[in-house]
């Protein structure tokens, strides 16, 4: 991912509805020595932007429903001087598969050497993957926090209603979970729900 000087003069357009991810990509491109980078978060007016910007490379997240609009635009411009096509190198399907897996796609100006684009795509793929990993971890952490809160509430309910100590309440939850082959958080949730109905 070290900045190769020869590709640093490329004009790059990044289209990503997720502003945080877009800035992560932008940072990666800056680290690799790219200075002519434009980032947009919505595709409104992108046709005009592409006309004026004349990008060599377009990086787009594949969750954008506006990809079809870009396909149409590339069809219209295929006969003009700068036809743009999706980054596909038949000798390197593994890297394009990795890109689609990661949720990113790239279009390049026809005739641009593949080796100038590959580091850009590889960087985008690794950053897209890192971003999804972060998001997944965040979701897991949130989930764990939620579960802990529910268990605390269930313990409180059991302690109050059955006069148990905190340790006894937790042991009861754990024992029920084992007996019913469920997660403690699920048992705790039923306790909380049941208490809401009974009280």
């Amino acid at each position: 991912m070290s900045g190769s000087r020869i590709s640093a003069d490329l004009t790059i357009l990044v289209i990503d509805e997720n502003a945080i991810r877009a800035s992560i990509i932008e940072e990666g491109l800056a680290e690799a020595g790219h200075r002519k980078v434009t980032v947009i978060h919505e595709v409104q007016g992108v046709a005009r932007l592409i006309e004026t910007l004349q990008p060599d490379v377009i990086i787009i997240d594949i969750e954008s429903p506006n990809r079809d609009m870009m396909e149409h635009m590339f069809q219209l411009t295929r006969s003009v001087s700068r036809p743009i096509a999706m980054f596909v190198d038949s000798s390197d399907t593994a890297s394009i598969e990795a890109a689609v897996d990661a949720g990113v796609s790239a279009y390049i100006v026809d005739g641009l050497k593949k080796e100038r684009v590959k580091p850009i795509l590889d960087m985008a793929v690794s950053r897209f993957n890192a971003f999804s990993r972060l998001q997944r971890e965040l979701a897991e952490a949130r989930n764990a926090l939620e579960e802990r809160k529910v268990i605390e509430r269930a313990k409180g309910i059991l302690m109050k209603m059955r006069g148990l100590s905190e340790e006894e309440a937790f042991a009861l939850l754990r024992q029920s979970a084992m007996n019913e082959k469920k997660k403690i958080a699920d048992i705790a949730q039923s306790v909380v729900t049941a208490a809401g109905l009974l009280l």
């Binding site: 594949i62 429903p65 990809r67 079809d68 870009m70 999706m86 689609v100 796609s105």
Partner: peptide
């Protein structure tokens, strides 16, 4: 999916 281009590529 959200776009025909995605369906084609996937």
């Amino acid at each position: 999916d959200v776009s025909w281009a995605n369906v084609r590529d996937r």
